[in-house]
Design a protein around this nucleic acid. Structure first.
Lengths: 328, 328
DNA sequence: TTGAAAGCGGTACCAA
DNA sequence: TTGGTACCGCTTTCAA
């Protein structure tokens, strides 16, 4: 690999001049610049980012921590972050925390040690202590906090919406699957749903589940064993909804006649389920982009008026819910 | 952040001694070592990986390039790589090339510039030129090459197996969906299927599709419009299979009575489809782990006898294929 | 067994 | 407009 010295020598100038030329800082004579550009091209010189990073204490790297790369909701978030960052010349490095605090801490450490200039975290744990005293800005994604900027979708609305749609469609015994208790957004959804069900005075049962594939099937079986006569399920996410749907088929339930199901997230797969899954859509890609935008503002040292960006959710009507006359 | 100087001062020794102590190289008196350990603890000192990397021209970072993080097959690969690397103290950074050569090149550049010590690439493009002259070892994942070490699953077998199972189940007009032509593994699968179908003397049609979600639905519609009387589909992957299944439902086809479908990959979602998807399983997680192991061997400078690791695939019988007496 | 110092590849201050 | 040089934090040689 060619270094700045090689370039300097070839162009017949000092490294200081080359540095100035590269970074567009300070004076460089037009002719000199040409010499340098020429040398750079010939040597195929690329500045060593590590050396830069050492001096500046800043790289061009952005860290993104996801809780579970296998849940398709998160890759979608990642794509949003990535596209926005890409357009601004930043590089994204993704860490998968696997819902383990230890891995999360490892990644934070890695990011620190590699001088990332910003971090976006979408992990679910509620302990934010290890995010204090970072030397770079942080944006929380898919959850919120008073202390840190964040981008998230309206869980309260989402829960409410899910409940309302089921009630409107005549469900009398609704099962609410609550996501992991440590997750802020899961709590919001749950609260929204419960509020709505209380108001509507509809019977409901509650079960707490994880968000993960590996356990989804277990929860689905558990659900129907505990509440065999449930006629409406508000799932904690689409993965769990898919498992519930699968189990319902196995038990020979008619959907949506006997049992209606509403998922959460609207991951790409949901449209391919049978029947296609009705769900509450979180705008994952957009959330990722917004988080990236917000982080960039902070990195630029801009004043930000609204540090907590709340995005709307939306009911996606497919076929695990009955058709009704909409009147709202 | 505390630096090595701070530690040296606190421990009353020179930075050179601290460095030796940290790295366990050269002599350090037992007592001195204790002093140093104490100082490190008190200051919560962590060596600056960027500075280390600059000197050593080596980090502890491993790069992983995925073609499409949204396709659940790849996160599964990534998990395998990650787990293995984690156990060996290496850090993984994931880049999503989005099936675009430009992004792939960007990531390679980023990895180079950040001194990764090894790279695993699972991208689909067939141009390997930009992987020449890397200063660190490379392992190809989910594809193969004569020049580079690789880990992949047996596509020939996979294609053959898929065809055989459909033929055994009485399909007379099979549609073979071929993955992107530039993908080695897709070509292998295709060849395997076609070989088998020729041998069995069964009629078949061919359609080339992408692997991606966004287009899967389009291909599914296209399939049934071109070949409305097909009674067996060998899909290019599970995502496409899901779309085909969905479209088949929409058209009111009975599955598996009228139409049988076999997917490829066995992503977690496939079990939740309705009917649950019969598919050819690639051991994604294990492939990831193997690739990581192989890379580690190369990084350790070990001689490797078998540079191209071929893993077996397996028919997963679910319910998009008919039941038969197995006799093989 | 220890420490002084050079150097990894850049940047930026300051003097020329 | 340019170049010399100190320095970012660490490792390693070499001399003490």
């Amino acid at each position: 690999m060619a270094t700045i010295k090689d370039v300097a020598k070839k162009a017949g100038v000092s490294v200081a001049t080359v540095s100035r030329a590269i970074n567009g800082k300070g004076y460089v004579h037009e002719d000199t610049r040409k010499q340098i550009d020429e040398a750079i091209r010939e040597l195929n010189y690329k500045p060593n980012e590590v050396a830069r990073s050492l001096f500046n204490k800043k790289s061009r790297l952005i860290g993104l921590i996801l809780p579970d790369i296998r849940n398709p909701f998160f890759p979608e978030l990642a794509r949003g972050v990535e596209d926005e960052m890409q357009e601004h010349g930043f590089r994204l490095i993704i860490g998968n925390a696997d819902e383990k605090l230890e891995k999360e801490l490892d990644y934070i450490e890695t990011f620190k040690q590699n001088n990332v200039i910003g971090l976006i975290s979408a992990t679910t744990n509620q302990v934010l202590a290890h995010y204090e005293n970072l030397s770079f800005p942080l944006v929380l994604l898919d959850r919120t906090s008073d202390e840190h900027p964040s981008v998230y979708a309206n869980g309260l609305d989402g829960g409410r919406l899910a409940a309302k749609e089921l009630v409107n469609r005549g469900c009398k015994r609704i099962s609410v699957l609550k996501g992991p208790v440590e997750t802020q957004t899961a709590r919001d959804r749950f609260k929204g749903a419960v509020d709505e069900l209380y108001t509507a005075n509809v019977h409901f049962d509650v079960m707490t589940t994880s968000f993960a594939f590996q356990e989804a099937e277990y929860w689905a079986k558990e659900l129907f064993s505990k509440y065999p006569d449930t006629d409406g399920v508000i799932a904690s996410n689409d993965v769990v909804a898919a498992a519930v749907l699968h189990e319902a088929h196995r038990l020979g339930k008619q959907i949506p006649e006997e049992l209606q199901i509403i998922g959460y997230d609207d991951i790409p797969f949901s449209q391919f389920l049978y029947p296609p899954l009705s769900t509450i859509r979180q705008p994952a890609y957009e959330m990722g982009r917004e988080a990236a935008k917000l982080l960039i503002k902070f990195m630029d040292g801009k004043k930000v008026e609204n540090k907590n960006i709340l995005l709307p959710v939306q009911f996606i009507e497919r076929q695990t819910t009955r058709k009704v006359e909409r009147n709202d």
